[in-house]
Nucleic acid binder design. Structure first.
Lengths: 343, 343
DNA sequence: CAAAAATCTTTACGCGCGTTAAGGTCTTGC
DNA sequence: GCAAGACCTTAACGCGCGTAAAGATTTTTG
């Protein structure tokens, strides 16, 4: 690297002994110039450390190499983990991922989408807030930007959806629980933020019905993203009031289960499938921490990698199709049951 | 909102019945135009839904309203949480935060910094990887971009550092543990990624020495960002081999402690300060999940909000000072001891 | 070795907006 | 009602790069 800073491509081209259009061509596709030319540019690049001005590059372009990733709440380790994998995949594919969290806020989600539109991204992965989302705003956004929804489906929006097969999640846990002990009740929030929760409850009801078993759904109060605390408080309430009709509890998601287990511990209730255990608790998601709860949580796992890979595949073919699919593409990825000590 | 899409400010200005420079003036500072003019623009804005082209805006600017936030590993809830708060503060202050995770990778951290430089941000909050960071790359970055380091200090880099007072963290936990029972040993990773870990161990050694107590440091093996598993495995090893010389364990951070507690549970060791408890475990950070461990974790909490607020204050004054401080500014925020059931 | 093909250089325009300068128009205060 | 000042319009340039066209140069091909 040498002394003074290079101001623009003109200057850099001169220093490489080439013309600006050639250098410009190189930056858009290094293989589009003669190998010797390419080498000259790359040598100069070593010496002078020049990068084309991003704003100027994109100014006159209808599409960029930007890819937006929007999740509803990044401080939820589930979303952090899935976003992490998608982000790495984007980088590997030569895109510039830009990560946003709606922080559980409808207004913020709208603002993110507006700002994202302005960035002219090649595509966007959007995990919407769900119940709180402004459907018309999302619809408008999807008209302007090639969008792949993930995690949380909103019927008809975006060109594709990649998510988990909630029925498969619940089927596996319920089947396992029934096979190894008493049938479970279903523990969830009364007003879940996310359509997955509704799908899971409905799956539970249907599976129990088909098995000729009586379903029990326990709905606990609470708003916001503090699921663990909602689960903990709800567990205390339902246990104290004798509302627990079964000794097996299937939580809608791991974060609620983490709270449930905390409450059990606080009450001295032993959870697990062994001798002397009062309750069995299972759940869904394979939250990054579910391995470390006490006891470790039996759960139906998302195939994080598979979801991320499928997201990328979908976006690639979407981009190749010019940003539109003839028909909305839906992928549901089944769960993988993970047996641990809690049930 | 009306029919056809507006292409540029010229067109929008015409539709508002004003000239482009006036409209441009408005977008840079709405209060810089006459109230009646402002009203006309805002009415047109309602009707036509126009946003100036971001790339064009920034193209000819040396500074933008962008603020970078870089953390070493976003899937760590601690960083997700601090990033969340800082991001919200930035938005409230009218900036456009852009969030990056280095994903624990040195190369990626470098690339993020390079890309960030190109975005000409008004400022950057950088929590570096620590031991893995490329110091020369960070140094170069800090020369180009007004940077506030946080969480993890690297001497002399950036214009300021905002972080936690590790000595205060350890002092409070050690003091509490000694006062209420036997003195703790210190449980940590052999090769911590982060300078905070070293500061905490040194604080532990010094505090024990000053109290005339014999220190015990337990170092466990393990690489990467899976701290819980490292803590769990390390706990199993040290307990099985009889390496635990004290009944009180102070973990370097909550994630290790979460693993430690999981191991204790798996071994049937009761943790807590009551009757029949074999061990006491305390830790540092007040990780978002430490409330839900079994038992709930006694820990020294970061003042998340205070750290975020101080970060913002520092960046504001840094921007006002034209991006440079006469002297590097260091803020260390003390811990808040949180007593829960584990110790 | 000459012709064809590939690649480069030169020249020039456009993108959308920031910004400046000169001059016109509207407000304000007396 | 009039001057001063605030605000607006018009005109024009520049930012850094994409890109197109025409001509010059190099490389490949037969």
């Amino acid at each position: 690297m040498s002394e003074h800073k290079i101001r623009n491509m003109e200057e850099f081209a001169a220093l490489s002994g080439l013309s600006r259009p050639t250098v410009s061509k190189y930056f858009n596709d290094p293989s589009s110039v003669r190998p010797t030319t390419r080498q000259r540019i790359e040598e100069a690049l070593e010496r002078y450390d020049f990068r084309p001005n991003i704003f100027a590059i994109n100014q006159n372009r209808s599409l960029t190499k930007n890819v937006g990733i929007v999740v509803p709440y990044l401080a939820d380790p589930f979303f952090a983990e899935i976003a992490r994998i998608i982000e790495l995949r984007c980088i590997a594919a030569g895109f510039s991922p830009i990560l946003y969290s709606s922080h559980g806020d409808r207004t913020l989600e709208n603002e993110i989408l507006e700002g994202l539109t302005a960035l002219k991204p090649a595509g966007v992965f959007l995990a919407p807030l769900g119940r709180l989302s402004d459907r018309s705003a999302i619809e408008r956004f999807c008209r302007d930007v090639p969008t792949v929804l993930f995690d949380s489906n909103i019927e008809g929006m975006g060109e594709a959806f990649v998510g988990s097969d909630n029925f498969s999640f619940v089927q596996q846990t319920v089947e396992y629980l029934c096979r190894t002990g008493s049938p479970p009740c279903f523990f969830e929030m009364r007003t879940p933020a996310n359509p997955n929760a509704n799908k899971r409850r409905n799956a539970y009801l249907r599976i129990m019905e088909e098995a000729g078993l009586e379903p029990h759904v326990i709905k606990v109060e609470g708003e916001g993203w503090g699921f663990e605390e909602i689960g903990r408080q709800g567990a205390h309430d339902v246990i104290a009031s004798g509302g627990l009709k079964t000794e097996t509890i299937l939580c809608s998601n791991d974060r609620l289960a983490i709270g449930f287990l905390a409450a059990c511990y606080e009450r001295g209730l032993r959870v697990g499938r062994g001798e002397g255990c009062a309750l069995r608790v299972a759940s869904h998601d394979d939250h990054p921490f579910s391995r470390f709860t006490c006891p470790a949580l039996t759960t139906a796992a998302h195939e994080y990698e598979a979801v991320a890979d499928r997201c990328m595949e979908t976006l690639f073919s979407l981009i190749e199709s010019g940003g539109r699919f003839a028909q909305r593409d839906e992928t549901l990825i089944p769960a993988r049951l993970i047996l641990r000590a809690s049930a």
